[in-house]
Nucleic acid binder design. Structure first.
Lengths: 162, 162
DNA sequence: CCGTATCCATTCCGATACTG
DNA sequence: CAGTATCGGAATGGATACGG
């Protein structure tokens, strides 16, 4: 991000963060998922400065998250639409939103609502599941370094206590 | 974040982003999920400057994501452990990692592996599902503003082309 | 080992004015 | 409407030296 780029880290999370770019990027992606396609949509919804928005949009296009396409209705301007790469960020966006709804909700309630379209009910929490769809407890999820080492609840070392 | 705080936005995503603080925060949380508990763990794993690490850790503690606890082994130092609030960020972390694995993988492969502990197999993709666990296509997921307005694939307006 | 205190470089962002 | 150009302020992050 700032001084050091994360893109050379051998860590998918860091590489993703480096790619997405900044917090504004995620909010722009959220708005794109909500249907925003035009410069003025993003600008109005987010209250972001125009030059900043230009910069973020360019980054997202360069990163293959957004794509510039001619306006479908025949007008002169171009529009910004999510690529497959960008749509694939939906779980990240939704998970962020669900965490916020649960832990840092606004007193006036959430501004966006995510539902199962078929039933109209709120989308179940995005959460680790088994292949058959069963929810997993966190201690049933194994996180380890690719080179071996310990599970989520243990430290990676024996030696050298303080 | 920078100049403007997102915390007053009526948007769970923005509020979450504001809470988490910075990219380093998410990497620190990832490490904590991997079992890191001590200052030196984070510092070594992330290659982060000490003062920056101090600052981020303090923010995370203040935000209720991490908790300072006495070292379990009786040594003088304290350790940092995830709160429930922090553990609840697991879906975000995992989703970020999965996106990175898919789209911006490192040539040497991912550095961390997430599995179903029971079977040892890779964790299925974190993705929106119905209550019964069935995967949803993105167009089966409804995203709308809380005050009404259109679905994910439509713009929010009729007026004012150009 | 775990920080804290300075100092400094880079980046991000916002406000404003201006162009096609 | 959709940017671009310039400016300045703020936050992030790194290096280093120092204390508990």
């Amino acid at each position: 991000m700032k001084t050091k780029s994360f893109s050379d880290m051998q860590c998918s999370i860091a590489r993703t963060l480096d790619h997405v770019g900044s917090w504004w990027s995620l909010l722009i992606i959220r708005d794109a998922m909500m249907g925003a396609r035009r410069f003025k949509h993003f600008q109005r919804n987010l209250g972001i400065a125009k030059n900043t928005l230009t910069s973020r949009l360019n980054d997202l296009v360069a990163g293959g998250i957004l794509e510039r396409v001619p306006a479908a209705d025949g007008y002169a301007h171009e529009e910004y639409v999510l690529t497959e790469r960008g749509r694939d960020l939906a779980p990240v966006i939704i998970a962020l939103g669900q965490w916020g709804d649960k832990w840092v909700a606004h007193e006036k309630g959430p501004s966006t609502v995510v539902t199962v379209r078929e039933s109209g009910e709120p989308l179940p929490r995005i959460w680790p599941r088994r292949a058959d769809g069963e929810l997993l407890a966190l201690n049933e999820v194994g996180m380890r370094w690719a080179n071996g080492a310990g599970p989520i609840t243990e430290t990676q070392e024996k030696e050298d206590p303080s």
